[in-house]
Nucleic acid binder design. Structure first.
Length: 143
DNA sequence: GCCAACGTTGGC
DNA sequence: GCCAACGTTGGC
């Protein structure tokens, strides 16, 4: 199963709102970047992702699950981009800040560190485990 | 609020 | 098809 990271400005769409959207989840639209699109096209229902708050928080705050694979984004008038549906799984016990991630040598290769502007990013299994560890979710880290 | 990094656009 | 100019994002 693949792992991802979804990035959002909490002022636009926060994890709190994602939680309130409940089991049915919501579509993750507004992506207008081809690399991010490529990642979304690779997603499958059941894939898990981190929910990252940019700007105010600068921290990974929760876990989401992809519940519907890539389909066209009707809000994109060019017709080039699409979106996936995600639902909140749970908030992390402790959120993991960007500063923590940067301070962790084993996470030096995370896309978040190297290409922070990319809004949808792949996360390796190892990175997932380490972030879960930092979040105090070590028991959940096992695959 | 500033600025670096990156993507996109448009002139040639 | 190249590349400079411009706009946007996001960390600080």
């Amino acid at each position: 199963m693949a792992r991802w990271l979804f990035k959002s400005e909490p002022a636009t769409w926060s994890f709190q709102q994602q939680l309130e959207a409940g089991e049915k989840g919501t579509f993750w639209n507004g992506v207008r970047n081809h690399l991010a699109k490529k990642h979304m096209m690779a997603m499958k229902a059941g894939d898990l992702g981190f929910f990252y708050h940019s700007n105010e928080d600068k921290a990974i705050i929760g876990v989401v699950e992809v519940i519907k694979p890539y389909y066209p984004d009707h809000t994109d008038e060019t017709g080039k981009f699409g979106m996936v549906d995600v639902r909140a799984v749970k908030p992390l016990k402790e959120k993991v800040s960007l500063a923590q991630i940067k301070a962790e040598p084993r996470l030096a290769n995370m896309v978040l560190v190297n290409n922070s502007r990319l809004s949808v990013q792949p996360v390796t299994g190892e990175e997932w485990r380490i972030v879960m560890e930092l979040a105090g979710e070590a028991d959940r880290a096992e695959k």
